[in-house]
Amino acid sequence: MANISEQRLIEQLIIGDPAAKELLYDRYAGALYNIVLQLVPVKERANEVIVKVFLWSFQNIGTFRTSGHRILFTWLLRKAREFAIKEALPETALTGTELMKQEDGLLQQFYLMLPADQQQVFRLSYFKGLSITTIARLLALPEGQINDILKEAMKSFRQFLKKTWN
């Protein structure tokens, strides 16, 4: 069971096989947890996010194929970020240079490489989950400019990933 392909794992999950659920957890929990900890630096809350994501995935595996994602990991990751942002919002004011304890985390590494303006927009967008409109209001800049800055950051992110993990 431990070596089955992703396709097969998805099929087993759809029919609700408990062993497949265990396998899904064992395969992805570690990689997800690392990224969630960068978003929610409080361990207890990050734990809650992990529980929520997996319970959600067991219920919603049927929607995977229409989600636009090609692999399970990023499908899980997107939901994990969604839950993490909801979990983190209450105590982090929008000023936010605070925390993010996992300084060697993947997204953290990337973030630290960016120029200052891109850092600010990327932080508010990725780590805080704010919309372009909200960021523009917060920084008192036009939305178009925020959009351009974020696009630049995304171009850099593409290069960042390609450089090391191609």
Binding site: Y25, A29, N34
Partner: peptide, 22 residues
């Protein structure tokens, strides 16, 4: 690419989380 990057530095959640999920 993102998957391999994330799998390079996994951090396992506490065992009780696995118990709770399963």
């Amino acid at each position: 690419r993102l998957e391999s990057a994330a799998f390079d530095e996994p951090a396992m959640p506490p065992a009780e989380i696995r118990d709770r999920v399963l």
